[in-house]
Design a protein around this nucleic acid. Structure first.
Lengths: 171, 171
DNA sequence: CGCCAAGGCTGCGAAATCCGCAAGCATCGG
DNA sequence: CCGATGCTTGCGGATTTCGCAGCCTTGGCG
């Protein structure tokens, strides 16, 4: 359940520039390719080609382009609990002033895995991953609340992760 | 050749059985391997071996085991906005009665990408991915609220995704 | 209409990688 | 001492990756 990137075409985190529709959405064939790779990120190009009706080389080119454009990443994802992290939480943030600058500050924290600007009673929703309660307390109480513009926060500590998929575009 | 789609290591979603620490957390070397694959899910075993100080065969065995145990998955991840989904939201759910049964019902919905049981003012947090406003409305107002045990919900529509990483275990 | 450039696809060898397997070691625990 | 486990080295064959040379279609343009 989680993953990330590398070297040449690595996109460590995606901000507006990348996720902005830098172009039109992928066509049906590329979607099909993505779907294949969502099932198994290491599936051979030839197998994908057979499944979507394209040659191996064509699949290779399209995958490379999708990677370069930042439309998708092929990465290993894990369940944080199985790799030693004991505390996770979703934090809702109330902001006064510029929301985006606060979002940027939170984005810079390594403990924040997920930062999104929202409409509703919270201005920001942030998912954080910590090693233990002390760590969690430190991040929420000291670091996040210290960011200029943060008026208040509300935390939702994870008790159990029930579902986490990566099947976008599949339906 | 690939009629074995079903097979071995597909873990479309993980529930308690899988994510429960089925064993001790991976050792330092396996963590290092995961880290490599978080950078590039297609990196060759030999390259990984060189990076973590193991032979190609050993890396192969460990990766296979990590996959089989469900500790990690290697998959393609995309930004929903770039593949045609226009509306995303985080929904906080207040439950009366058994929280887990509600969580299971939500988990069964394909629009729910992420379902987690939490402590705090919400009993559940659910991330939803939809094609447009109508779709979103339908899911929240009709489907989710129709689940027995759901007392009320609060929605946070996504305005902008600022960060999304997959670097667990890396820090 | 004719020409040309660009983009996407196919088909190929060549190189690299994957994969199973066997033999040899070292460690750990009963 | 024995058995289980995990790693290494080595090996060959199957598979996959990769670069490149065509080919074809599309779109711009005189």
């Amino acid at each position: 359940m989680h993953s990330d990137v590398v070297a040449s075409r690595s996109a460590e985190h995606r901000d507006s520039r990348e996720s902005r529709n830098g172009g039109s959405p992928p066509d049906a064939v590329s979607l099909a390719i993505i779907e294949q790779l969502q099932e198994d990120g290491r599936r051979p190009y030839a197998a994908i080609g057979k499944a979507v009706g394209l040659s191996e080389a064509a699949v290779r080119q399209r995958v490379q382009k999708l990677l370069d454009q930042g439309v998708m990443q092929i990465v290993a994802v894990t369940d944080p609990l199985t790799v030693g992290f004991r505390r996770q939480a979703m934090v809702g943030v109330h902001v006064e002033g510029d929301v985006e600058s606060v979002a940027d500050a939170l984005t810079a924290m390594s403990e924040c895995e997920y930062v999104v600007m929202t409409a509703g009673s919270f201005d920001l929703m942030v998912e954080i991953v910590c090693e233990d309660d002390d760590h969690l307390l430190d991040v929420i109480n000291r670091r996040i609340r210290a960011v200029p513009g943060v008026r208040s926060t509300e935390s939702f500590v994870y008790l159990k992760l029930k579902k986490q998929t990566y099947m976008w575009g599949t339906r």
